[in-house]
């Protein structure tokens, strides 16, 4: 923790008697326990033959994970689907990063007429429920021949999220003094290389947050996949899991839990690694 952050949360620390701390932790534990227990159950169940009384594993087995090496009827190859999901998550993150890192800069630095209104509009766009746009999107995708293609879904998901990401990264750019850019100009750099070599590294925490959230956004994307993808060649894990759940294997809890664990595992790992940057962000942006 840098000095600045320490002072920022200082007001919390001043109030913190031991009792206060204990109360907060106890409350957090109680509040999050249902979720934690659910995940624990999911994990245990995926490696056991069954659960006695609903929560005691009866025996160790790997057969629940057979979808990883066997063809399950009605479902495509899980490795292929997982690969698609990584492509979707990664591409959404990539596109959103590329656009928002530039649009956020423009909104932060170039004053133009109606800027305030544009910002408001950006946020409003994000507030619209996606479902209300499905028909219009269908026509657009058909016109551009992007129906039944992963690229179509990538662009859709990205365009839905770009306003939010732009807003976030603009805040980071706003925190950089103008003098830093001027120093770059005097030190011999063009505008574009100042942006690349000085400003982008300075907003890196924001870019990491956006990358994580956008990967997640693509990873968990379901509605566009299920609506605009017709061939299971382009399925992602969300559609795969959904189909497994909705199929005739309802009774096979072992398989379903294993698939679910497989679906959430990468995301969990990602969050563990990005945790440091996430908390930095919630404490208020860039620190030198």
């Amino acid at each position: 923790m840098t000095k600045g952050e320490y002072y920022k949360i200082g007001f919390l620390q001043r109030n913190s008697s031991k009792i206060f701390n204990v109360t907060v932790y106890a409350l957090l534990i109680v509040l999050s326990s249902p979720i934690v227990l659910a995940y624990a159950w999911l994990f245990l169940r995926s490696f056991s033959t069954g659960m006695a009384h609903g929560f005691i594993p009866t025996g160790l087995t790997f057969s629940n994970w057979r979808f990883m090496w066997e063809q399950i009827s009605g479902l495509p190859n899980v490795w292929h689907v997982t690969f698609n999901t990584f492509i979707l998550g990664g591409s959404v993150a990539g596109v959103v990063l590329l656009v928002s890192s530039m649009s956020g800069f423009a909104l932060s630095r170039f004053a133009f007429k109606g800027q305030g209104k544009l910002l408001l509009l950006l946020l409003m766009l994000h507030a619209f429920p996606t479902v209300s746009l499905m028909v219009a999107i269908f026509y657009i995708l058909r016109m551009t021949h992007l129906l039944n293609s992963l690229l179509g879904v990538i662009l859709l998901r990205a365009s839905m999220d770009i306003p939010w990401a732009t807003w976030i990264i603009k805040g980071f750019y706003d925190g950089i003094p103008r003098e830093i850019e001027w120093a770059g100009a005097i030190d011999g750099y063009s505008r574009i290389s100042i942006w690349r070599k000085v400003l982008l590294p300075m907003v890196k925490p924001g870019l990491i947050v956006i990358a994580v959230f956008e990967f997640l956004s693509g990873w968990s994307e379901f509605i566009f996949i299920t609506t605009f993808i017709f061939s299971n060649k382009w399925w992602t894990l969300s559609q795969y899991t959904y189909t497994a759940l909705g199929g005739y294997r309802f009774a096979d809890y072992g398989l379903l839990t294993a698939i679910s664990v497989w679906y959430i595992l990468p995301v969990t790992i990602l969050f563990i690694f990005a945790n440091k940057y996430m908390t930095q962000m919630s404490l208020g942006g860039i620190k030198g």
Binding site: I186, M202, K204
Partner: peptide, 20 residues
Amino acid sequence: IPPRYRKIGMVFQNYALYPH
């Protein structure tokens, strides 16, 4: 003429060092 061709050096009030 853009700043980068002016053969100048500048020191700012807040120093404007590159923090990263």
